[in-house]
């Protein structure tokens, strides 16, 4: 009675083929990641030591550690985070929860999506014009971080808006029908249920900015600095630019050094990502529906 008909068998075969195709594509995707990580670990791993992380580069950047660049990258990312997250999340809340669906909103949404596609070198020039020159922050951590923040904003907005919209409309309607204002609804129901998605998107995006080179090159990152920055108005070294410099601009750099720097950079990005993943897992455990 429940015997497989030819069409059932055929469907099953097709199902297996598609499964195989998707799996193959996934593996194709994973291979370069593993190769990159493998090379970095094998060639850069021996460079890594406590001293490498905690001393300054010496001898024309051909020896010594990466401390100023490491701290610089952390500072740049943190300031960018502080600048972009409140604005981005607030904008996304407005667009998702308040804005009427009209031509203006649609135009803004379109602009945001296009902004996300602007090449980073263009952001760099914008940052130079706006923050370094117009606002007269000079080439500084502040100017560079703000440039990174502007670059990260559209993606922060889009990912936040998506997390907000994943909260079922019925929850909002139920609150509104009770006489709750939009803000009360956002506070009691929408944000608590989208916060894990929002934070994940935000941290992923901001950690991505850790690797950016172009936007900070003209705005605040220095080729080489013999001292650590004292305030956000100082220039700083950064891992990404340091890597670029020692790989292409400085003679006599030992073979393993660029790999070591790259490994530190990847490591710090992975660290930030795993923080976000751990956080999301923790929040998911408390997911409410």
């Amino acid at each position: 009675m429940f015997e497989a008909r030819p069409i059932n068998r055929q469907n099953q075969t097709i199902e297996r083929i598609w499964r195989g195709v998707f799996l193959a594509m996934t593996l194709v995707l994973v291979i370069p990641v593993l190769v990159i990580l493998g090379v970095l670990v094998v060639r850069g791993g021996p460079m890594i030591s406590w001293a490498f992380l905690t001393t300054e580069p010496t001898n024309g950047m051909t020896e010594g550690g990466v401390l100023p660049a490491l701290l610089g990258t952390i500072a740049l990312v943190l300031v960018a985070l502080i600048a972009s997250v409140p604005v981005g999340v607030a904008a996304a809340v407005y667009l998702s929860e308040y804005a009427a669906d009209n031509w203006l909103t649609r135009t803004i949404n379109l602009a945001i999506i296009n902004l996300a596609g602007v090449p980073s070198i263009v952001h760099a020039l914008f940052g130079l014009g706006a923050f370094v020159l117009f606002f007269q922050f000079g080439t500084s951590i502040l100017a560079a971080s703000l440039t990174l923040a502007v670059m990260a904003l559209p993606v922060v907005i889009v990912s936040t808006r998506e997390s907000l919209q994943a909260v079922p409309m019925a929850f909002r309607e139920a609150c509104w029908n009770m006489g709750a204002t939009r803000w009360q609804t956002i506070r009691t129901v929408v944000l608590p249920n989208s916060i894990s998605g929002i934070l994940t998107g935000v941290i992923l995006e901001v950690s991505r900015t850790a690797g950016e080179t172009a936007p900070i090159m003209f705005t605040g990152a220095a080729f080489f600095l013999p001292f650590l920055p004292q305030s956000v108005y100082d220039q700083t070294m950064a891992l990404s630019l340091h890597l670029f410099v020692i790989s292409t601009q400085v003679p006599g750099v030992p073979d393993g050094l660029p790999y070591g720097v790259a490994l530190v950079l990847v490591g710090i990005v992975l660290l930030m990502n795993s923080v976000s993943i751990a956080f999301r897992t923790w929040l998911r455990g408390r997911k409410k529906w």
Partner: peptide, 20 residues
């Protein structure tokens, strides 16, 4: 309108237990 709505109770076709 919040004052108006706060004195009108509404029950929907599909139950909506808020995630609280």
């Amino acid at each position: 309108l919040y004052a108006l709505r706060s004195r009108i109770g509404v029950v929907f076709p599909l139950p909506v237990g808020l995630p609280l």
